[in-house]
C-alpha cells in the first residue's frame, strides 16, 4: 500500500508539472499567440465570447491580469473540459478534434507497440536461452533497423510496398470512398488493411531494442544462484526458462516499457506524418502548420496525460509481478 500511495503521489506531482508546463509554454514564447489566433478566427467567422475566454485562459491574455490569476483561470477552464476553438478545423472545438483523432492513434500505435514489445521480449528470451544460436545472431540485424532513422525506413517501405509493388495503400486510415465508418465489417477490414504497413514499420524499428534488452537480461539471470537450484530440482527446461529465467528477466523490460511510452508517442507523430494517418499526431502537425495554438496546446496536454496514465498502469502492473517492489516502496 505504501508503494501505491507513493506512486499515486508521484503521478499527481507529474500531472501538476505537465499542466504547468502547458500553461507556461505559450506565455514564455516570443510572439503573441492569442492575438494571432483571434485575428485569424475573426476572419473565419464570429467568435463567441466563451470561446474567446477559453482561448485566453489557455494561451494567456495580454491584459494586465497577474500570472497567478491567469493560472487560476487556466485550471478552471481545464476542469470544465473547455480547450477553446480550433482554428484549422473552425468552428469545431478543440476537444471534439481530439476525441475524433485520439482513437486512431491509440489503436495503431498502441497495438503496434504491444505487438513489438511482446514479440521482441519473446525472441529475446529465446536468444538469451540459447546463446550463440542463430537467434542470437539476429540481434545485430534488428539493432541495425534501430539506427536507421525511422521515417527513412518508413518512407522506403512505403515506396516499395505502396508504389513499386502496390500491396498496401499509400496513405490514410481507411478507404474513404467505399466504406462508411462505424462498427461494420468492411470498415474494420479496411482499417486493418490501411494500418498494417504503418504498424509494420513501427514494429520493425522498435523490436530490436526489446530483443536486445531481454536477451541481455536473460543472460545475466541465467548465472543467478536460483537458476542452478531450479536445474538441480530437475524441473523441465521449458519451465525453468519461463518461470525462473524469463519471469525475472522481463522485469527491467517492463519498467523500460513505461519509459519508452513517451518515445512511442513521439514516433507516432512521425508515423502519422509519413502515412497521413488520421490520428492525433497529424492533427498536431496541422495545428503547427496553421498556427492553431489552441489545438496545439490541447493536443500536447492530452498526449502528456495519456502517457502519464499509461505509465501509471505499467507501474501498477509491475507491482503485481515483482513482489519485492511492494515492500520497498
Amino acid at each position: 500500500m505504501r508503494y501505491l500511495s507513493r506512486k499515486l503521489g508521484f503521478y499527481l506531482v507529474a500531472l501538476w508539472a505537465a499542466l504547468t508546463l502547458n500553461f507556461l509554454i505559450p506565455r514564455m514564447m516570443p510572439g503573441d499567440p492569442v492575438e494571432i489566433m483571434l485575428a485569424k478566427l475573426g476572419q473565419k467567422g464570429p467568435v463567441t465570447p466563451e470561446s474567446r475566454e477559453a482561448i485566453e485562459a489557455m494561451l494567456g491574455t495580454d491584459s494586465s491580469r497577474p500570472l497567478w490569476a491567469q493560472y487560476g483561470d487556466y485550471l478552471a477552464g481545464l476542469a470544465n473540459g473547455d480547450l477553446g476553438v480550433s482554428l484549422v478545423f473552425f468552428p469545431a472545438p478543440v476537444s471534439s478534434i481530439i476525441a475524433q483523432t485520439l482513437p486512431w492513434t491509440i489503436g495503431l500505435i498502441g497495438l503496434a507497440t504491444i505487438i513489438s514489445f511482446l514479440t521482441g521480449v519473446g525472441l529475446g528470451t529465446l536468444a538469451g536461452w540459447k546463446r550463440g544460436s542463430w537467434m542470437d545472431n539476429l540481434i545485430p540485424v534488428t539493432t541495425m533497423f534501430q539506427s536507421v532513422p525511422y521515417f527513412w525506413l518508413a518512407l522506403i517501405l512505403l515506396f516499395l510496398l505502396g508504389s513499386v509493388w502496390p500491396v498496401f495503400p499509400l496513405n490514410g486510415g481507411y478507404d474513404v470512398y467505399n466504406v462508411t465508418p462505424g462498427w461494420n465489417g468492411p470498415f474494420l477490414a479496411s482499417v486493418v488493411y490501411y494500418g498494417t504497413l504503418p504498424a509494420l514499420t513501427i514494429i520493425l524499428s522498435s523490436i530490436g531494442g526489446w530483443m536486445l534488452g531481454m536477451r541481455n537480461m536473460m543472460v545475466s539471470t541465467l548465472s543467478d544462484d536460483y537458476m542452478v537450484t531450479a536445474e538441480a530440482k530437475g524441473l523441465r527446461s521449458r519451465r525453468i526458462m519461463m518461470r525462473y529465467a524469463a519471469r525475472n528477466a522481463v522485469l527491467p523490460s517492463i519498467s523500460g516499457f513505461a519509459i519508452s511510452l513517451g518515445f512511442v508517442v513521439a514516433g507516432s507523430i512521425i508515423t502519422e506524418a509519413v502515412f497521413s494517418y488520421p490520428g492525433i499526431g497529424s492533427a498536431l502537425l496541422q495545428a503547427v502548420g496553421g498556427n492553431d495554438y489552441a489545438l496545439m496546446q490541447g493536443i500536447l496536454l492530452i498526449i502528456t496525460l495519456s502517457v502519464l496514465g499509461a505509465n501509471l498502469l505499467v507501474d501498477l502492473l509491475y507491482s503485481v509481478i515483482d513482489p519485492r517492489i511492494r515492500a520497498r516502496g
Binding site: F10, V13, A14, A17, A18, L21, I25, P26, M29, P30, G31, P33, A258, I259, L261, G262, F263, V265, A266, I269, L284, L285, A287, V288, N291, Y293, M296, Q297, I299, L300, I303, T304, V307, L308, N311
Partner: peptide
C-alpha cells in the same frame, strides 16, 4: 530523483514540436 522522474514521464518530442512551432 523526483525532478528526473517527472521529466522522464513527460513526453519530450511533442513538447519540442510545440516549442519549435512558436519559434520561427
Amino acid at each position: 530523483s523526483l525532478f528526473t522522474n517527472v521529466v522522464l514521464v513527460i513526453p519530450g518530442l511533442p513538447v519540442v514540436i510545440v516549442i519549435s512551432a512558436y519559434v520561427a
